[in-house]
């Protein structure tokens, strides 16, 4: 193993990973009306984290994002189940979603839908599982 200098890769990563994360957030929120959604958004966020893992190392990523990805998977599943079970409080069947139009201060009239909460659960589960798999494989000596 030779000593190498990754200055170009690390500088490019600092710029591109933010662009990838912004693109994944766009994919996540655009999923209701255009192609996209929680699954591909989570995969893109995991791709940005994988790019950080490639340019730096596992310890650096642990320092800047101290997440336990297994807990993240569990939290995403909990959010999805609670969203589905919340409809039982209003005497409607399991998994019934609701939406309404609200006047938000900056965005104007926006339709807020409870399917977004379920999508947040999918997003967190996808990020958690992908990062768990990649970190577990990468750590084996």
């Amino acid at each position: 193993m030779r000593k190498t200098n990754d200055l170009i890769l690390q500088t490019v990563t600092k710029v591109i990973s933010f662009i990838i994360i912004l693109f994944s957030i766009h994919l996540f929120f655009a999923g209701h009306y255009t192609p996209g959604g929680g699954f591909i958004g989570g995969l893109m966020t995991a791709a940005a984290l994988v790019l950080l893992l490639l340019a730096y190392d596992i310890k650096t990523l642990d320092n800047i994002l101290p997440f336990d990805y297994k807990l993240m998977t569990a939290a995403g599943l909990l959010i999805a189940v609670l969203t589905a079970a919340g409809s039982l409080l209003f005497n409607v069947p399991f998994f019934t979603h609701a939406y309404d139009y609200f006047d938000l201060p900056l965005l104007g009239e926006t339709s807020l839908h409870t399917a977004v909460l379920f999508d947040i659960g999918v997003y967190m589960v996808v990020i958690g599982i992908t990062m768990t798999i990649i970190q577990t494989i990468g750590e084996s000596e």
Partner: peptide, 22 residues
């Protein structure tokens, strides 16, 4: 395509893709 190429190049250069500690 960018991430895949970077991963392949890092494997060819260093022999491992994800390092535990730099």
């Amino acid at each position: 395509a960018f991430i895949g190429t970077v991963a392949f190049s890092k494997y060819l250069e260093k022999g491992e893709i994800i390092q535990r500690e730099r």
